[in-house]
């Protein structure tokens, strides 16, 4: 008798969640961050509705500081999949020239990511937004529901979470409220990698090790991706074999020295590694910026 494997069961649960949103929510959108979790989420959405297309668009909140390879990948992937893609940029922030080098990571992230996301959700009046967050990423996520409700001001109230028994999700919202839906809640980082391998899902090449120009900024190796890096800093660039364990704004994403150039080698490195995933993400180390606090303020 065939048995469902852990990946089969995780996939089936995610498909159920994604379909439920499409069936019950008025105006859903899938937030696509171009990372590996987004790649898995998009793959699951394609499966959930096959042979139809997913009945919602993708949206990328572009801080304008993403790796160039991410943007190329994003546009190509959306076209290949036949998905509508909305790209939102905080124009106010652009006008004021907000960026990580000039304003620091805290201000940059708040204006170009958190505020920008709120702008976009308000602009298109989305009632539900899929996100690729997982419960194993961080302590406050472990307690967050799969359907996570946000007030009209996009605030998360951990005290007012709805119970989710069985696979029954209450998707009803009051005027102005919206939902964040996390179909990958029960996946771990290892599950994601195993699934990418099993399904042959394409991911941004930055995850694989290659010789890249990096500089050391605030104690973290970051890649020189364009000429907006201050010249003083860019001058110090050296070539190293590095890869990225998470992808975001290039000045805020720490590179790890690695020679892992295949999926197998990445998984091997991950299994043998000794530090948790978020260590390379500058945003998390920033003073007092706990994920929980950020979420209450509206950061996804």
């Amino acid at each position: 008798m065939p048995q469902l494997t852990h990946l089969d069961r995780l996939e089936a649960e995610s498909l159920h969640i994604i379909r439920e949103v499409a069936a019950e929510c008025e105006n859903p959108v899938m937030l696509y961050s171009v990372g590996k979790d987004s790649a898995v989420m998009l793959h699951l959405a394609m499966k959930a509705f096959y042979p139809s297309r997913p009945p919602f668009p993708l949206m990328h909140v572009d801080t304008t500081w993403k790796f160039r390879e991410m943007i190329e990948f994003r546009d190509r992937k959306a076209a290949e999949m036949g998905m509508d893609l909305i790209v939102h940029i905080n124009e106010d922030g652009m006008k004021e020239g907000v960026g990580p080098f000039s304003h620091g990571s805290a201000v940059h992230t708040d204006v170009m990511k958190t505020q920008s996301l709120k702008q976009a959700l308000d602009k298109y009046k989305f009632t539900a937004a899929f996100g690729g967050a997982r419960r194993d990423e961080e302590k406050s996520r472990a307690k967050e529901r799969i359907f996570s409700f946000r007030s009209a001001e996009h605030r998360w109230d951990p005290k007012k979470q709805r119970p989710e028994p069985w696979n029954l999700y209450n998707t009803r919202i009051n005027q102005g409220e919206s939902i964040r839906v996390f179909p990958l809640s029960n996946w771990t980082e290892l599950d994601i990698w195993q699934y990418i391998r099993r399904e042959g899902i394409e991911i941004v090449p930055l995850y694989f090790a290659a010789e890249r120009p990096v500089v050391n900024w605030n104690g973290v190796d970051i890649m020189v991706d364009d000429d907006r890096m201050p010249e003083e800093l860019a001058k110090t660039a050296v070539m190293k074999s590095v890869r990225f364990r998470t992808l975001g704004c290039y000045p805020l994403t720490g590179a790890v020295e690695s020679t892992a150039a295949t999926l197998e080698e990445i998984i091997q490195e991950m299994l043998l590694t000794t530090t948790s995933e978020r260590q390379g993400r500058v945003i998390d180390v920033d003073q007092s910026a706990s994920m929980e606090k950020k979420k209450q303020e509206g950061y996804f």
Partner: peptide
């Protein structure tokens, strides 16, 4: 502990083995 010798010696074999866990 999840420290199969295969991780270091033969990752592909390890993954074949671990893709089919139950939950």
């Amino acid at each position: 502990r999840l420290t199969d010798d295969l991780i270091a010696t033969d990752i592909a074999a390890y993954l074949e083995k671990h893709e089919n866990k139950s939950l």
